[in-house]
């Protein structure tokens, strides 16, 4: 479903701030794969996401999604195949527009926008049915402006908006990081439920190792722009936070406690 090969991305090339964000990254995902990505700040996780979504173009390497070469395709064009949830709950919704209008915007992700009304009676029933999946009572507040919702509610809505049109790839960029623990758990559970139900091919970045272990069937660890550790379905089942940390220290040559604090 996703095929990335030889991805190389350098920022500020030729200056003292030069930073190799992605260093020959290869990643392949089969349909239905749910890969969790962990790594300390600056490991290249977000750059990886942005190269897939098209916000950044890799210096070298290619990105294939669903068999199509998307390496140089504009962000809005490839968005037809990609669902995204951002870290910031503000980032995934339009605050001055109503819940149903936001859903209408998301509904058009895979379709050409026309002069037909975005919210019709038939569509509204469809949106309501989808909102019920969130169990937050948002289906009764469809005319409310999204700016009035709490962070958790917005993030749940963002998740729904990113997924209800069956994306080929779902990108989750630390989408629970800005929420309190109970809301984060709610969103984590919703993510699990929705991804399983729709069988979505998903890539999730997280700083929470337990979450990375609980969700998904594969796990990769990144450091300094490289994938330094990768666990397949069988290996992941036996992983624990302790084993992951040990693995990390083994690869890094005994990084010490600072790595632990960065990762957990």
């Amino acid at each position: 479903m996703l095929e990335m090969s030889g991805i190389f991305k350098v920022f500020y090339e030729g200056t003292p701030d030069e930073k190799i964000a992605l260093n020959k990254v290869d990643l392949s995902m089969r349909p239905g794969d749910f890969v969790t990505v962990i790594g300390s700040n600056g490991a290249g996780k977000s750059t990886l996401m942005n190269v897939i979504s098209g916000k950044l173009t890799p210096d070298v390497g290619s990105v294939f999604i669903d068999g199509t070469n998307m390496t140089a395709l504009a962000e809005h064009k490839r968005a037809a195949k990609i669902g995204r949830v951002f870290q910031d709950p503000m980032a995934g919704t339009a605050p001055t527009m109503t819940i149903e209008e936001n859903l209408a915007l998301a509904y058009n992700r895979t379709k050409k926008r026309t002069l037909a009304f975005g919210v019709t009676k038939k569509r509204r029933d469809f949106y309501r049915e989808k909102l019920e999946m969130l169990h937050l009572g948002l289906e009764d507040r469809m005319g409310a402006k999204v700016g009035l919702l709490s962070g958790g509610e917005r993030q749940a809505l963002s998740l729904l908006m990113a997924t209800f049109t069956d994306p080929k790839i779902l990108l989750l960029d630390e989408h629970t990081a800005a929420l309190d623990p109970s809301r984060a758990e709610l969103i984590t559970n919703l993510t699990k439920e929705i991804v399983e139900k729709l069988g979505l091919t998903t890539l999730m970045v997280t700083h929470n190792m337990q979450q990375a272990l609980d969700l998904g069937n594969r796990l990769i660890m990144m450091d300094k722009g490289q994938i330094i550790f990768s666990a397949d379905e069988e290996e992941k089942k036996n992983l624990t936070v302790e084993k992951l940390l040990a693995e990390f220290q083994k690869i890094k040559g005994g990084g010490g406690l600072s790595d632990r604090s960065l990762l957990s």
Binding site: A80, E101, L105, R109, R113, A116
Partner: peptide, 22 residues
């Protein structure tokens, strides 16, 4: 309309509406 909604969303949250392929 669908076009009108995305026009409004551009003024509201440009990054978001781009991620929905507008």
């Amino acid at each position: 309309t669908e076009v009108g909604l995305s026009l409004r969303a551009v003024g509201d949250n440009e990054g978001m509406v781009r991620s929905f392929s507008a």
